[in-house]
Design a protein around this nucleic acid. Structure first.
Lengths: 205, 205, 205, 205
DNA sequence: AATGAATGAGTATTCATTCAT
DNA sequence: AATGAATGAATACTCATTCAT
């Protein structure tokens, strides 16, 4: 009895992270990233997720809400990733900066679907309201890069730079790399991007 | 034979340069770039162009063809822009390279609609076939940049670089800048991008 | 046999008088009378009744059956009301007739929900089968009125009339009053209707 | 040329009264009056009207608008009918009043569909907004009846009455007759209603 | 060439009903 | 008995395309 109620409680508590919700979310992420919002039908999502289409509406009230979830929920993980490093920024070294850049490039290529959906939204600013959440995320990110540049200049491992320019340029660069190049298994390509990213910080290779 | 091709040429030339065709094309470009393919309706295009609904079909057989035109026709102008410089590449100087970069950044920000439509297609490679034409254009462009880097290194005004990396990185950077930043009137922003673009060539500012 | 019927009676008696069944019934009555059949959802009924969605189906197998119950069950009470008087019709006086009319008008205004649902069904005779039960009820009612008219003429307190015409006219009048006027608290209005109802019997006021 | 433009002008001017619009309107009136709003589908209306369902949307933007038209447009004719008499009210005779009542009863039975739709709306006041238009129409009508009563009393062919009570009672009576009795071919029935209607004015038969 | 009415395939969403817990 | 997740039939509405004028 007790076990049962705990189990049930557990299931209920996990309502938001139920297996089916996750399947539907991943299906939406895949299809929205491949075909955009309008071309993706709820029927497609349901089939991809292996549920009936009525079930999609059990977990997401509307197609809009599913899309919104696909755009914004991945930001949480991205944000955590940034914040973790931000807390130990004072002791940053060039070596660590190179690692961070490596991670960024890798992440932008690995999280293909998540970023494609974001780019889809960013590319149609008149159409989507999610922009605000994405804008504030972009601001956080560029601010984070600016902080790094300031620290790097102070510590002497970065040349004299305009932190703001580096922040915006670096974000643009990562976004453009992800948008323009599809072959995320190509190590030579990603290594090239890592080198070029370093140059944006004024570091010759 | 000759007559026919001339006639056809004549008809096409007239058709292609008709005022109404241009209006419809510009309307399509505007709306596709703002709202994507599916969300843009022929009715919207007709209204934006100031023509009647049926007239759109007089100039473009299907919605698909209008979209295809909006994606590929601007490439002609872009290509001309590149080729012109390519012919006098042997005498390139650092000063000229800086000018070229300036022009590139300016063009990517000014041709907002044309490039947004292209990015819309690039961002959904599984969905659109226009990819091939865009791919070959991208290859031309990166090849052009690679040639510049080789010349620059040979002439000594560019540091030792991997030309391919610079080519891909530079294209990615331009695309990302255009995708991520909307405020094309902001001179400070575009100047920043110009500086960062130089850094991709290994030129400190 | 006897046991079984008793048991069945017992079960039905319990089922029919369960608190939850009554709550659901009243919720259905309210919502059907306000929004009609199709616009009322089982979910709405469940919420209004304060029970869970599935519980509605425990007491009424289908939405149809719930609706049917809402239309027909109130007839029982109406019928009792009529029959009670019918048994002592021989001794009817004008005074008593006036009381009966008072009661009828009051009842038609007080039992708003019950009668609205009935009117909803009557108003769509091609759509609902409940019509037969309602028809026979209407016949009973008009017959009842006809009997009154005959008695009244015989006893001399009603003028010469066509009993059938009075019966039909009186039912029509009550129904129309209920349909057309919403303000059942308005005493002036209901008093007016009582006076007019008397006129249908040929009694000046 | 001139003829053509006139013809075209004629066609355009008649846009609201095009044959197809009228067919769709009549189909809607029929089906809404028989099955109510929700149970009537656009597909049904289209089939009944003999057009494709897309065409329904050419003439009525939404199902709501078609319904609204079916409820309110018939009021125009009703209103004209009333107003015509109203203008020559001063010379009213008992004979004419009887004629008016005859016409009212006949009209309420002949315009079955139009009035059923109105009753459907009136019966669900919480649900429909058309109520206001119907309320003001009902007010006009009862006011018209009150005027008649006042004239009749002044001229001496009507007994002392409360005009308001007669107005409301008479409208209720007509509505209820239409609601409750379906057999509009039954002359005996309608004659009965005409007699009863007279009694509401205090006129014995 | 220009127009816009007619068409019907396609889509998001609703909701009665079933059924496992 | 009570619950509510899962299902899919049904429906309003959109919109590219056709075609008669």
């Amino acid at each position: 009895m007790i076990d049962q109620s705990i189990m049930r409680g557990g299931i209920m508590a996990r309502a938001r992270s139920s297996k089916k919700r996750e399947d539907i979310f991943q299906a939406g992420l895949k299809l929205f990233s491949q075909h955009g919002y309008s071309k993706t039908t709820i029927k497609d999502v349901a089939e991809e997720a292996g549920v009936s289409f009525g079930t999609v509406f059990t977990y997401f009230e509307t197609k809009d809400q599913l899309f919104h979830a696909c755009v914004t929920e991945p930001l949480v993980e991205f944000r955590e990733h940034i914040m973790e490093i931000r807390n130990r920024l004072e002791t940053l070294t060039l070596q660590q900066l190179k690692q961070i850049i490596d991670q960024h490039v890798d992440m932008f290529f690995e999280k293909e679907r998540e970023i494609r959906v974001i780019q889809y939204v960013i590319g149609q600013p008149e159409r989507f309201q999610e922009m605000e959440e994405l804008d504030s995320f972009a601001n956080e990110f560029t601010q984070f890069i600016q902080d790094i540049v300031v620290i790097g200049m102070k510590k002497g491992f970065l040349p004299n730079s305009n932190p703001e320019e580096v922040g915006h340029g670096y974000l643009a660069f990562l976004m453009g790399a992800r948008l323009t190049y599809t072959d995320h298994k190509n190590v030579q390509l990603t290594n090239g991007f890592k080198n070029q990213a370093l140059r944006l910080f004024g570091i010759g290779v």
